[in-house]
Design a binder for these strands. Structure first.
Lengths: 147, 147
DNA sequence: CTCACTGCAAATGCTTTGCACTATA
DNA sequence: TATAGTGCAAAGCATTTGCAGTGAG
């Protein structure tokens, strides 16, 4: 684990401690896994990867702790682009979105976000303060495009 | 049913016929329900409303036909992140998004879309042609905001 | 008359929950 | 030591599917 990664893990652990949560082996392992893999993971994927290293971790616990981490605002849930299960991403990961091909299901990260400041104003007129957003993009990829 | 509504229903039925699908009582009832209610509905909600008028309709059929109508591009699925079930909206409904309060779960329609033309260009550089998008907004509503 | 469509019931897949045990603080 | 956290097993819930009967074309 790099120094940067270690720092990220420590930051999340500090937040747990701050809110009165206990620091368990399972929580530390989950956070480390998310930091090291550097991408959004589903509960099942996290569990699958952790089973190898630390034999004692149940999928139930992964789910429970994902909720805790979302409550702490350490993770952001990313919706199930249709079929799949929810994925979780560290909040400090650079903001981006994903596009899914409606024909083959392949996905790709898009390092661009079209949400502009006017959205916040519009939401304020509705009485809402924006916390986060999730943009789901559906398109046809080069391989599936007949043109 | 108003003249406008009837026209919308006929348009979708024409598209079904065009693609070789059969026009069944259940499909007509579902389309009419979506047109008349004028909002995104879940499979369960459609089934619940139709049960009253036409006793013979199963939830399975509602699910199957929703998939058919999405394939025809007559409906757009809207994912309400994780918790709730998927909702379906007629494609000709004016484009908008929804905001969900992360505290109380209340939702509201937002008649504004922040997606600008640059997004299409960015996607093209990735080889994708955008078909549709779904923006999920999460915030805190006036009632839940402590400030 | 044929086969797409349907209802039924059972299965699936992801996620949640009750309970008794374990381990952090 | 107290109780938050855990594993296990079972339950939930939305959605899907196999099958035999029904009805649209």
């Amino acid at each position: 684990m790099t120094v940067d990664h270690a720092a990220s893990v420590i930051a999340v652990i500090a937040r747990l401690k701050d809110k009165g949560y206990r620091i368990t082996a399972q929580r530390q392992a989950m956070i480390a896994q998310l930091v090291e893999s550097g991408q959004a993971l589903s509960a099942f994927e996290i569990w699958e990867k952790l089973k190898v290293r630390y034999k004692d971790i149940s999928l139930d616990t992964v789910y429970r702790n994902l909720h805790v981490l979302v409550d702490l605002e350490a993770l952001t849930p990313i919706n199930a682009l249709g079929k799949e299960s929810v994925r979780y991403e560290l909040v400090d990961t650079s903001h981006h979105h994903h596009i899914v091909c409606v024909k083959c299901g392949q996905t790709q990260c898009i390092e661009y976000c079209p949400v502009d400041p006017r959205l916040m104003l519009v939401l304020q007129t509705h009485g809402y303060e924006l916390v986060r957003h999730n943009l789901e993009l559906f398109g046809v990829c080069r391989q599936c495009n007949p043109s």
